[in-house]
Design a binder for these strands. Structure first.
Length: 803
DNA sequence: GTAGGGTTAG
């Protein structure tokens, strides 16, 4: 009000001569300032500097425009120097300088200018906050961003829509979607502009919340806000991510109507969307119709062709890019390299020529390209080449490590690499590497390690991912921790075939046949089609629970309902079941009916059945085939020799043992291990290497005493042959699994289950002892042997004494 | 008339 009055006053008074003169100068200055601004905007900084130096008179605007010219072209020290010399500094001068540092990602400098500004008594405003927030967003500086958020609340700038937009974007880019959502939802609806909507949408889309992104797009239009060239490239990837082609087509229609059709960002996103929705034809046609050869659009199509397995098409696109003299970039090459990761060996020649091209063109120094090279070599099993590329990389990121970890054939090596990645610092695991490491932990049955990876993943704040959740379900079942597997399973919003199958197989291997079949029923009710693996789980469950009729029914439905040809694994389960339930003839009949070549698993089942039924002839056939299939396996020798002994054919038994010796085949030594406090404690039979050996042996003695009182009788048929009775009993007492359980009783806290893993099948005497131990000590003992899990609780075992 | 906020390709 005051200012208005003052202005009016000036306007009504008669202008003096001096005033007219100064007005003329001002108008001259004004037009030069505008010229300076134009030069700055078009990036002609040197010309701007020359003009600035020549100007006889300068005002605030002149100085600020020149600071902007330097600042936005990255000449930060020039900007700073000019800022220092500027006699008419104002808030805009500060903002211009800070914005330059923010755009240049000089975060320390930018933030210290931000604080310095305030120390010098100059308050920041909505523009300052906007710049700094954008920098926090693009660098993922969550803590700084939160600090700035605090400033906006204290100074009430959080009512400025530009600042709010910056906050939403910052939280979105720092993967804090719920914070972004909270700010978005609590602001008055009428204040949201299209930047607000687009920022929220982008937050959803980038963080894997595709459906929410699509919903956000609909709400935006419903509220009457027009989407623009920024909105479309954000919503389209969300449609692609969930294969929502119909929604994608609607968005496409909206684009055509809105006139953003020719925008290169929009167009490339449309092509990518169709390609992701497996409509390569439309994608190809759109690419053909484009007025310019846009490398991004071509790249998206190459990527999708690779993903859909059309390698030839991808390579031909790549060739055509060459022919059209398009600039191949660091995004084209990784997709092309992906073609070779899983291709035939003949293709490696082309792969080598692409690698040469990369070296020649200097693209080897691009992270994306090197990552793809590491990935390709690792997946092809040429780890030395992969490591060579990896070690030469200056800046390794989580993708580089993932390529190395996932491609590695050895699980142990994979975990070591993962630990190394964590130890070298600065790199936090993402969903891809988490899923991969969880699978490796599962294969090695490292529950504690898997749990740590799980905890880390929760803390990381990544949204739910199907592949991580599936790996978790699988890891927990493979480590015998069904409660945890169930907890993850029931927390999952979407489940796929892999999820259900992991649970079905998991229950089966943990002796929970009923739950396994129940889960199968639920899966079918949920409209999920079973596959080859699902049926292995189901038949395994049936065979271990003696459910002959059910097994036959499932086996039939495999072929008749789901058109899946049964494989050797399925036959092995059924043969095992018949053998065990006493129907040897059926087992043999099934063997002869097999459409596929029987493998070692099938012959092992036949051998076990023959042994149980004393069918030496079939046993001989099975054992001999097994000796050929697995020349280093001692099992067929031992089992057949035992069958001879049992039939009183001692000489043949001895011959077989001699043959075994002459072929240098020995029984794989039994080994049991317990995981504890980040260490694996392993025990062999009569092992005396452990640090707490004395304690462990006296615990074994106590154990044996207590369980004998409870009714346990040692079964010396499982002991070595050439000892007297007492020696045999002692030998039994110090079997690896008994040492492991004794250690577990000493080291595992009361109430927690003792988890043991054994490389071979558990010995019959140990199995019986474990049952007693679980009762006498009131402990849940979980023993995973080479075949399945045994949950010993209160004197009985989940396997129903069959393994 | 000077300063801030949203976008595509692995």
């Amino acid at each position: 009000m005051l200012r208005l009055k003052f202005r009016n006053c000036r306007l009504t008074s008669t202008p003096s001569r001096n005033y007219i003169h100064s007005n003329a100068v001002r108008s001259n200055l004004h037009s030069t300032n505008l010229k300076l601004g134009d030069l700055s905007k078009s990036g002609r900084v040197e010309e701007a500097r020359q003009l600035f130096d020549k100007m006889p008179e300068k005002d605030e605007y002149t100085w600020n425009t020149m600071i902007v010219a330097y600042s936005s072209s990255g000449r930060l020290s020039d900007a700073k120097e000019l800022f220092r010399r500027n006699p008419v500094k104002n808030t805009i001068s500060w903002n211009a300088l800070i914005s330059g540092h923010c755009k240049n990602r000089s975060k320390d400098e930018a933030l210290s200018l931000f604080w310095e500004m305030q120390l010098q008594g100059r308050s920041f405003n909505e523009y300052t906050l906007g710049s700094v927030l954008k920098m926090c967003a693009s660098l993922g500086l969550l803590q700084r961003g939160e600090q700035i958020h605090g400033c906006t609340v204290k100074t009430a700038f959080d009512s400025d829509v530009g600042v709010v937009n910056g906050l939403i974007d910052m939280y979105g880019q720092c993967r804090r979607v719920s914070e972004a959502e909270y700010i978005f939802k609590t602001m008055p609806g009428e204040r949201r502009n299209n930047v607000t909507w687009t920022s929220m949408l982008t937050g959803y889309s980038r963080n894997g919340f595709a459906y929410k992104a699509i919903e956000c797009f609909r709400d935006m239009r419903r509220e009457g806000t027009q989407p623009n060239q920024f909105t479309f490239p954000s919503v389209l990837p969300a449609c692609g991510a969930v294969c929502a082609r119909r929604v994608g087509v609607q968005v496409h229609g909206c684009i055509v109507k809105s006139g953003f059709k020719t925008n290169i960002f929009v167009q490339s996103a449309v092509i990518a969307m169709y390609a992701k929705c497996r409509d390569l034809e439309t994608a190809r046609a759109l690419l053909q119709d484009m007025e310019v050869d846009d490398v991004v659009s071509w790249n998206s199509l190459v990527v999708e062709c690779v993903r859909e397995g059309f390698k030839e098409e991808a390579l031909s696109l790549f060739r055509r890019m060459h022919e059209r003299d398009m600039k191949i970039d660091e995004f084209t090459l990784p997709s092309v390299l992906n073609c070779f990761a899983s291709s035939r060996t003949e293709m490696m020649k082309i792969a080598s020529s692409v690698h040469c091209l990369i070296v020649k063109t200097g693209y080897g120094s691009y992270k994306l390209v090197s990552n793809a090279l590491v990935d390709m070599y690792a997946k092809r099993g040429t780890m030395d080449s992969a490591l060579k590329v990896f070690e030469r990389m200056i800046e390794k990121d989580v993708v580089s490590w993932t390529a190395l970890i996932t491609g590695n054939g050895s699980y142990e090596e994979a975990l070591k690499l993962f630990c190394k990645m964590r130890a070298e610092g600065g790199i936090s695991p993402d969903q891809m590497v988490t899923a991969s490491v969880l699978s490796a932990s599962a294969e090695l049955t490292l529950l504690e390690f898997g749990q740590q990876v799980h905890c880390n993943h929760i803390k990381s704040g990544f949204p739910a991912s199907l592949s991580v959740d599936n790996s978790l379900v699988s890891m927990y079942t493979k480590c015998g921790s069904l409660e945890d597997a169930e907890a993850v399973f029931s927390s999952m919003e979407t489940k796929d075939l892999i999820t259900w199958t992991a649970l079905i197989v998991g229950y089966a291997k943990n002796g929970k046949a009923k739950d396994s079949l129940e889960a199968y029923k639920l899966m079918i009710d949920n409209g999920v089609r079973p596959d080859y693996i699902t049926f292995i789980g189901l038949l395994f469950a049936c065979s271990h629970a003696g459910l002959t009729e059910e097994a036959q029914r499932y086996f039939e439905s495999m072929r008749t309902v789901y058109r899946i040809t049964p494989g050797p694994e399925h036959y092995a389960c059924l043969i095992d079941l018949y053998g065990r339930s006493g129907d040897f003839a059926k087992a043999e009949e099934l063997l002869n009916q097999m459409e596929v070549e029987p493998d070692a698993t099938v012959w092992k089942a036949i051998l076990a059945a023959s042994r149980k039924h004393g069918k030496i002839e079939t046993g001989e056939r099975a054992a001999k085939t097994l000796m050929e299939l697995e020349p280093n396996n001692a099992v067929p020798y031992v089992l057949l020799s035992n069958m001879y002994s049992a039939a009183g054919r001692q000489e043949e038994a001895a011959n077989l043992r001699r043959l075994m010796k002459s072929r240098n085949i020995s029984k794989e030594p039994g080994c049991s291990w317990v995981e504890g406090r980040g260490r694996v404690h392993s025990f062999m039979s009569e092992d005396r290497r452990h640090q707490r050996m004395v304690e462990i042996y006296s615990k074994v003695d106590e154990m044996m005493l207590l369980i004998r009182e409870a009714g346990y009788e040692p079964d010396v048929s499982f002991a070595l042959h050439d000892l007297d009775k007492e020696g045999k009993e002692l030998g039994l007492a110090y079997h690896s699994e008994k040492l492991a359980v004794a250690f577990g009783l000493l080291a595992v806290p009361d109430g927690a289950p003792i988890r043991i893993i054994k490389n071979l099948r558990v010995c019959g005497d140990c199995h019986s002892a474990m049952k007693y131990i679980s009762r006498v000590y009131s402990r849940h003992i979980i023993l995973r042997d080479s075949n399945c899990f045994h949950h010993f609780r209160d004197g009985s075992c989940s396997c129903g004494d069959y393994w």
